[in-house]
Design a protein around this nucleic acid. Structure first.
Lengths: 345, 345
DNA sequence: ATGAAAGCGCTAACAC
DNA sequence: GTGTTAGCGCTTTCAT
């Protein structure tokens, strides 16, 4: 258990001395440089291995002007630690770890205060990382634009907006809202509540989908059916309870996350309503949890693994100097009991 | 969206030239060295800020022999990507990110192939990180000992074992198994199935708790009631289905994760049994999901946030040269409908 | 109060 | 083939 500092770390000079050669020879041997005599090379490599020597990456990077570290930034609202609890973002971080590791990059994970998002820039400008993946655009469109204006290699998970200087990768939010609402309308529901915080671009786009679906069905969207619900569970439940207290004048509900949908179900039941009988509910993200709830949730599936890959690819392309357009990933609806495939008889 | 390389990054020499002073003055000014004339200092700092200059951390670290990066390693089984999906480990990673950020450390997140765990050592030996947090000990006790033998600053999330050279921090697994089983016995259940892969140390310890509880109640543990169930969902469900097919000769079930418990519930119902009527079920971890399932799960709560803090503190203590003993964190039982507080009448 | 110079651990011309 | 030398961008004696 003890781990005192002990003798200082081995370096190339030590290996060189022990092998009776110069540092440059060691450097070359370790790099597999063919100019070095195979015998010498083998001896050096073997020596280094047996001594458990490993090259100092910091020094190597400095010399080579190279760096294989990507910073993944989770904006963090000082009040609500939402990023840390929402399963979707946690999975996305996992997917990013996979995608980066697969490609031989290191991932620096950091939480940054959303209000000083540009402190993330220091990670790149200070040379810790060569590029930035921001997990969620939240309400920071302008700050993200500012980052992009500083010409940082940057990708953001989120929706595509007007006047956007940065590269975004996100699910097809309009389509998601559309699919959810269309499905509810197909079930014969006519008054569909949209739940989510529309100040967030992704939510705003989903609401746009909700509106489109309603208009397709000849229904004019009713602002009274837009409910501002936060992503975080406690707040969401409270918001739903308030709304239910005003009367349940809707028969369908489209939520912006699965957690939110679950809170809605519980609030509805607490108010004496049935799901999907009185109100059919659709969630968002289609996390594993959607399978386990009662009733299981119909939900808009977002491709998390693909998202990780696409974010990384977009960033790497920028690093290669390519221009990268924002990208929207397909979503689809997964039907379960909370809003079944066919209306109950 | 384009982000071509453009002009190379600003460095101290540039600031020095622009300010008409030497690099050393800039270095001192930026470090807030009081030896520098307040006026000059202010001017330099201001210039640097306005030019968006930030110091090259790599070079600084090299010179200062300093490093503030901790590597968090998620062992990864090439076949089953369990780490990436299990909510408990994802939350733990989140908690670690918080704890490290709070203390001013950077977190390098990497997935490493479980079979070559010691490749993680390269992260420290190569100077990328100064210490290692391994998320889960899995079946790698010996490899972890080998890492510790290399005198790497190292902390592992997991149980405390015999002949353990590394520092571990973990939940009280014996107590967890004990509480779960005792609760089931208190409900009048007599045949309690233990579900989990006992090759994993944590699971093995929980099973020990299961045995203890049974013996307390004067019941001899029946090996036929130990079921080898993997953590990953699909495999778990299959394993439960197989077992149910052999007959449900038990009235209580203690699972090693909430996901596992949910799979058990579904398998039981598919086989025509009720929960908690025929079989009362207890989960493990008490993740948010436990609240949302039907029935909500009684579960052994593990303190995730505290876990993150303790892991980090243990590692930092090692880095300060202190000897650090393994640590076991308290767990407690949270009672919900899957194994209610009182037996149904 | 400021500058010159050496060096952190490594690599890559350029010599021989 | 291998050694010598000059940096990568920074900090810090040691002078002045």
């Amino acid at each position: 258990m003890a781990t005192e500092a002990g003798k200082k770390r081995l370096q190339m000079a030590d290996i060189a001395r022990l092998a009776g050669v110069s540092v440059s020879t060691v450097s070359r041997a370790l790099a597999g440089n063919l100019a070095i005599n195979a015998e010498t090379r083998g001896r050096i490599v073997e020596l280094a291995r047996s001594l458990n020597y490993s090259i100092n990456i910091g020094a190597q990077n400095l010399r080579l002007q190279k760096n294989q570290t990507i910073a993944v930034v989770v904006p963090y609202d000082a009040k609500v630690r939402q990023h840390i609890s929402d399963p979707f973002f946690l999975s996305l971080v996992g997917a990013l770890a996979d995608a980066l590791t697969d490609r031989g990059y290191d991932m620096l994970l950091s939480r940054v205060d959303a209000d000083s998002l540009d402190s993330a820039a220091a990670l790149v400008e200070g040379g810790k990382a060569i590029g930035l993946v921001v997990v969620g655009q939240w309400r920071h469109h302008d700050q993200l634009n500012a980052l992009a204006a500083r010409r940082l290699p940057l990708v953001v998970w989120g929706g595509q907006l007007a006047r956007q200087l940065y590269c975004s990768v996100g699910g097809d939010n309009v389509m998601g809202g559309l699919l959810a609402t269309r499905h509810l309308l197909g079930l014969g529901r006519r008054r569909v509540l949209f739940a989510g915080d529309a100040r967030l671009p992704e939510v705003d786009l989903r609401r746009e989908g909700w509106r489109q679906a309603l208009r397709e069905a000849g229904i004019e969207p009713d602002p009274a059916l837009e409910l501002m619900v936060p992503f975080e569970a406690i707040g969401a439940r409270a918001r739903f309870d308030e709304r239910m207290a005003l009367g349940v004048d809707f028969d369908g509900l489209a939520a912006c996350s699965d957690l939110m949908a679950v809170q809605a179900v519980q609030a509805l039941r607490a108010a004496g309503h049935t799901v999907p009988g009185d109100v059919a509910v659709v969630g968002y993200d289609d996390m594993p949890i959607a399978t386990y709830t009662e009733p299981p949730l119909t939900s808009v599936h977002q491709p998390v693994l693909l998202a990780g890959e696409e974010l990384v690819e977009a960033l790497l392309a920028q690093l290669r100097g390519e221009a990268v357009a924002p990208r929207t990933l397909p979503v689809h609806l997964v039907t379960r009991a909370s809003a079944p495939a066919v209306a109950a008889a």
